[in-house]
C-alpha cells in the first residue's frame, strides 16, 4: 500500500489573464503521509485554494507533478475523485435540496449502493449532529451546520483522503471547535488523511504537519513545533503606556530581533529574554513609558507565521534590489 497520500513536486500553476500571467502557485513541493493532518496555511491570495484545486485535478497544472494516493492529478482524475472527499471554500451543496436529499444525491453520485446508504447516511448525520434536520433545506442551515453537512457529504463514499478548503470560514468559534473535534475523531478512529487550507493559526496548531504558503511558494514545511522553533530568540509580551514611541525606542535597542504588534500589546523577539526584559523596562522607563504585564511567552504559530513571512518579504525585496542594481538601466 502506498504510504504517501498526497505528493507534489515543483508544482506550478499560471493563470493567463488579459492583464498578463499570474503565477498563483510557484514551485510547491510537499508530501503528506497517510493518516496525517496537513494544514496549508497562509494569508488570502497565497495560492492555497489553487494548490488544492490543482492537486484534485479541478484546475489544469502548468508544471511540476502532483498526485493523490499515487494517482496523477491530471491523468487519473476519476480514480482520485472516487477516493477523495472535498469541501469547497464556498458552500457549494445545492441549497434547494434538503439535508437528506443532499446526502442521497452525493451517495448516488459516488455510486454507494442502497444497502450501504441505509446505514451510512444515518451514521454520518448522527456524527455531524444533523439527525434532527434531515428535512431542512441545506440553504437554510446555519453556517456551521452547512459545513458539517458538507463534511458528511464528502465522507459518504468512505474516502481515504479529505481535502478541505477553509472549512471554517465564516463559522462561529463554537461551531469551529466542534468541526475540528469532528475532524479529530475522523483522524483517530478512521485513520483518515486530512488536508486542510486555513488562514487560522489556532487551527494550524491542530495539524501534524504544516505548509506555510506565501505568494505561491511554500515558505516552510514542517511540524508546528519545528516551525515555531524556526523563529530565533525568545518572546516577550507587554502593554506599553504609550504605544508608538515605545515601538520606536524598542527598535533601537540591542538584542531586539523583531517587533510585532498584537492589539494594544507588543510582542518582541529578543536574543535573551531574562537579560533584555530589565533593559527594555529601563530604556522605556527613561522616556516615561511604563510596561504593563511584561512576561516571557511561548511563540505561537501566529508569531512564527508573521516572522517567517516578513523574512520572505525582505528576501524578495533584497533580490529585486540586487536585480535592479545589476540591470544596466
Amino acid at each position: 500500500m502506498n504510504e504517501i497520500a498526497i505528493r507534489t513536486r515543483d508544482l506550478v500553476k499560471i493563470f493567463k489573464t488579459r492583464r498578463g500571467a499570474i503565477n498563483a502557485v510557484n514551485g510547491v513541493t510537499l508530501q503528506v503521509q497517510r493518516g496525517q493532518t496537513y494544514g496549508l496555511i497562509g494569508p488570502d491570495g497565497a495560492g492555497k485554494t489553487t494548490t488544492t484545486r490543482v492537486i484534485l485535478g479541478l484546475l489544469r497544472r502548468t508544471g511540476g507533478e502532483s498526485s493523490v494516493l499515487g494517482y496523477d492529478s491530471m491523468k487519473d482524475t476519476y480514480a482520485i475523485r472516487e477516493r477523495v472527499g472535498y469541501i469547497a471554500q464556498q458552500f457549494a451543496l445545492p441549497g434547494d435540496l434538503t439535508v437528506m436529499e443532499n446526502m442521497r444525491f452525493f451517495a448516488d453520485i459516488h455510486q454507494v449502493d442502497e444497502e450501504t446508504q441505509r446505514h451510512r447516511i444515518p451514521e454520518l448525520l448522527e456524527f455531524a449532529g444533523l439527525s434532527r434536520f434531515t428535512k431542512r433545506l441545506a440553504g437554510k442551515l446555519s453556517g456551521g451546520m452547512k459545513k458539517k453537512l458538507a463534511l458528511a457529504c464528502s465522507l459518504i463514499h468512505g474516502p481515504d483522503v479529505v481535502m478541505l478548503d477553509e472549512p471554517t470560514l465564516g463559522v462561529d468559534p463554537v461551531s469551529r471547535r466542534e468541526f475540528w473535534d469532528l475532524l479529530g475523531e475522523l483522524r483517530t478512529e478512521k485513520g483518515l488523511t486530512i488536508f486542510v487550507c486555513t488562514p487560522y493559526m489556532d487551527e494550524a496548531e491542530r495539524c501534524n504537519l504544516i505548509g506555510l504558503m506565501y505568494e505561491g511558494q511554500l515558505v516552510a514545511h514542517d511540524s508546528p513545533e519545528k516551525i515555531k522553533r524556526l523563529v530565533p530568540g525568545q518572546l516577550l509580551e507587554f502593554t506599553p503606556s504609550h504605544f508608538a514611541p515605545a515601538k520606536e525606542r524598542l527598535a533601537e535597542l540591542e538584542g531586539v530581533l523583531e517587533i510585532q504588534t498584537y492589539g494594544r500589546m507588543i510582542h518582541v523577539f529578543v536574543d535573551h529574554a531574562a537579560r533584555r526584559q530589565a533593559e527594555i523596562i529601563r530604556a522605556l522607563g527613561d522616556q516615561g513609558i511604563t510596561c504593563e504585564g511584561m512576561r516571557e511567552i511561548e511563540p505561537r504559530m501566529e508569531e512564527a507565521f508573521i516572522s517567517l513571512i516578513r523574512k520572505q518579504q525582505e528576501r524578495a525585496r533584497a533580490a529585486s534590489e540586487t536585480a535592479a542594481a545589476r540591470s544596466p538601466s
Binding site: 457549494a92 451543496l93 452525493f106 453520485i109 455510486q111
Partner: peptide, 14 residues
C-alpha cells in the same frame, strides 16, 4: 456561480 458545479466536478460524475 453558486459553486455547486465545482462540488459536482470533483465527484466521479462524467
Amino acid at each position: 456561480e453558486m459553486g455547486t458545479l465545482e462540488q459536482l466536478l470533483v465527484t466521479p460524475a462524467r
